[in-house]
Design a protein around this nucleic acid. Structure first.
Lengths: 169, 169
DNA sequence: GTTAGTGCAAACCTTTTGCAGCTCT
DNA sequence: AGAGCTGCAAAAGGTTTGCACTAAC
């Protein structure tokens, strides 16, 4: 278990480390991807089928308020849900491909510089910074160019209804 | 009417400029604040009481897809709705006070620099960048310090239920 | 006269709340 | 025992969709 930082932080504030929270904590902590509540719920149920969706939301809220996880939108590409990541890493921007949905992380000095400038300029006390960048990754740029060329030759396509996520069980 | 840029852009793509859209366009364009759909709807109804909320959403989607407005979250301080602003201005970050809710805009070279670095680093084609910074404005920093001091002396406060926005009509 | 756009109602997805019962300490 | 948590059901908030009617070109 690698999430001792989080566990300690919770204990200090008298927050109980229940079985459900341990499951969720472990999942968030060791997941490579950016999980949303529904995905986290579905993973958690594999370990405890009784665990309720509401508990997932309550736990996420707790962690968010405690500054232990960051909440992301990832440009709302997958819908209006939120995504979560542990707040251990250095500040970084999320770079989201609008075509394939791949998410890259960018670390670099402009982020620190931006933070510093805003603190200086406004006398602002920065607590949390979120930078999300949408565009096309190198791979999708060529695919997209091709798609555009084809679309230009064809009569206007009948719009395919945007697929929504499957109704939850 | 100052929104000729938007009007032209719509016309070029054969999108009709209906009375409803003109109302909404004018409101978005000349509003100083960051409007959400509900606020826009309420303003629009003052000019046309028959105008439907759905039309507001459809128009916003249209403008967003056309790259004519940017969609913001403003750190979800006021709830999970989105805010909109015309995309005429130079790229800027939004700086939101987590206590009083005031939103400042920050223009500055770190933003351009960040964009450039990401394009170079990933070979990424940046279409839209969104930076939102939460923290405490200079004014609220002192108020907050005072509040914390008081809270520390008092027994734990009974949590006041978070007021949700009034149910829509 | 077409085709696109509107209004209405109803659905949808995501998240929150109320409350009774359970569980850590 | 007592505060804190959970699960369940139900609601809320924000947004989208289906469809018949209307209006812009």
């Amino acid at each position: 278990m690698a999430n001792e930082g989080i566990r300690d932080s919770l204990k200090e504030r008298g927050i109980r480390l229940t079985r459900q929270r341990q499951i969720l904590l472990d999942l968030i902590d060791k997941s490579g991807e950016h999980l949303d509540a529904e995905r986290l719920y579905s993973l958690a149920r594999q370990e405890d089928p009784k665990l309720n969706r509401v508990t997932v939301y309550r736990t996420l809220k707790l962690l968010k308020q405690g500054g232990l996880v960051d909440e992301l939108d990832l440009m709302h590409l997958g819908g209006d849900q939120h995504y979560y990541e542990t707040r251990m890493k250095q500040e970084h921007a999320h770079v989201i491909c609008l075509r394939c949905g791949k998410v890259e992380e960018f670390f670099g000095e402009p982020l620190q510089r931006l933070r510093r400038q805003i603190e200086d300029h406004f006398g602002f006390n920065v607590i949390i910074a979120r930078t999300e960048i949408g565009g096309y990754c190198s791979h999708c740029q060529v695919l997209r160019a091709r798609e555009m060329a084809v679309a230009a030759e064809l009569p206007p396509q009948p719009a395919v209804p945007k697929k929504r996520a499957a109704r939850r069980a």
